[in-house]
Computed example of a mutant assay.
Amino acid sequence: MSKIKELISWKFLLFIAISIILTNTPIIGNYFRVINTVIHESGHAIVALFGGKVHEISLFMNTEGVTYTSHSSWFGGFFTGAAGYIFSSLIAFLSFYFISRKKYKWLIIILLLFIGFNLVFWVRNFYGIFWLITFGAAFIFLLYKGTASIVEHFLLMIASILLVESITSSFTIFLLSFTQPYAAGDATGLAQATHIIPAQFWGIFFLSQAIAFAAAGFKIGSYRISK
């Protein structure tokens, strides 16, 4: 049993290594990293729908994204601002959860729902539409034509990218919250919203939750993903 677990662990680590190499490859790396941007911005948008409105989402080639929302209350704006990084970490964890139980179809459908909602309702810039159509087409192909092996390994790669990006993006905000607290994205926004809780606290919070979800994903990926 220990040897089996060791082999499984190595498979998980192999895909993490592949995802790190892939996401750092010029041009194509950014293309794959946008999947995390879509999840992140969708997190903002979904939470904003509860008592607010989503106006537009923009996705860019450099992996940056912007969600334009309005809210009827302070609480709506606060939770919308906090949702992005948490959502990215949660979906990364759930991806490994579904893969570990061989629920590949369910995971593809969930990711297609994110893509579909963004394409139909929110994203309007050219690159964003291009990315959603091309990546969505790849998932549709997997859903109907992909072999079990191809589907599993492609989804493992996507889950690994989401896991790596959830940590690296949170780490970037963590660093910015200390070096540039007035230009640290969501951490700055939450600091401005609360007035008394500084950006550094939110940088630490975002990084901590990312590590916690990553640890849970690592446990699942190391000991429950077979073959």
Rank of each mutant, 00 (worst) to 15 (best):
E6H: 07
G77V: 08
I225T: 06
I211Y: 03
E152Y: 00
F98Q: 06
L190A: 06
A210L: 08
I28D: 07
W131C: 11
P181R: 09
Y144E: 05
E56A: 08
G136F: 01
W131Y: 15
I8T: 03
T168D: 05
W74Q: 10
N30K: 14
K53Q: 12
K11L: 13
L156K: 13
E56K: 15
V47M: 13
T25V: 14
I86L: 12
E6L: 10
F79N: 05
R101W: 11
A199F: 01
R33Y: 02
F126K: 05
G65L: 09
M157D: 00
G65M: 07
A138T: 11
S170L: 05
G217H: 05
F174L: 11
K53M: 11
V47N: 03
I115A: 13
L13T: 00
I86N: 03
T63P: 02
K11P: 00
F218Y: 13
G52C: 08
F32V: 13
L143Q: 06
V151T: 15
S100D: 07
E41Q: 11
H44T: 09
A83M: 10
I167R: 01
T25I: 14
G146D: 08
F141L: 12
I196R: 14
F178C: 10
A137Q: 05
I129K: 13
L112M: 15
I27D: 07
K227V: 09
L49G: 01
Y31H: 11
G52V: 07
S160W: 02
K53V: 04
N30L: 11
I197K: 03
K5Y: 10
M1R: 13
I27T: 14
A183H: 10
W122V: 08
A191P: 07
T194A: 10
T80N: 12
G84P: 06
I225Y: 07
S88R: 01
I21D: 00
L163H: 04
K5W: 02
S73A: 11
P26T: 04
A215V: 14
A159F: 04
S160G: 09
A82Q: 05
T37R: 10
L94D: 06
S42N: 07
V120Q: 08
E41R: 13
V34F: 00
I204M: 13
R224Q: 14
F79E: 02
A148K: 15
K3T: 13
M157A: 08
I28A: 06
T134Q: 12
L13P: 00
G217F: 04
E152I: 00
H153W: 12
N125K: 10
F130I: 12
I140N: 01
G52N: 07
F174N: 07
F12T: 02
S208E: 04
I39G: 04
T37V: 03
I167S: 05
Y127I: 10
